[in-house]
């Protein structure tokens, strides 16, 4: 497909809607991951005592569930993105392709 054929899509309202929505969503999720991870690192660097507190009377510290939370959040965020992409973004892409025919 020549570049000329695709250029008009650039100004297609559907395309602009897709890009606007998806880009925003992707950056929000990226920022969430960055905040979670660098927040975790910042606590370790500046206030490690916070993570050393035991939960109740046990030896398990709050650092353990928080560390696990960071791992699980990475997976959950990818899941949220895939779900939204399948449900919202792919149909718009398909509509754009339909219009091209």
């Amino acid at each position: 497909m020549a570049a000329n054929d695709t250029l008009h899509i650039r100004h297609e309202p559907l395309f602009q809607e897709l890009v606007r929505k998806r880009t925003r969503f992707a950056w929000i999720l990226s920022a969430t991951m960055l905040v979670i991870y660098f927040g975790f690192i910042a606590i370790i660097a500046f206030a490690p005592k916070l993570l050393a507190q035991p939960i109740g009377n046990g030896v398990t510290t709050v650092g353990i569930p928080i560390g696990l939370f960071v791992i699980v959040s990475a997976f959950v965020l990818t899941g949220i993105y895939v779900r939204r992409a399948n449900a919202k973004f792919d149909p718009i892409t398909r509509q754009i392709m339909e219009k091209m025919k």
């Binding site: 990226s30 991951m33 979670i36 370790i44 960071v70 791992i71 990475a74 965020l77 990818t78 993105y81």
Partner: peptide, 16 residues
């Protein structure tokens, strides 16, 4: 655990 977290968090960024 701190290190394993670091090795993982690049993946969501790759996806997004």
């Amino acid at each position: 655990l701190i290190y394993s977290v670091g090795w993982l968090v690049g993946w969501p960024i790759i996806l997004f």
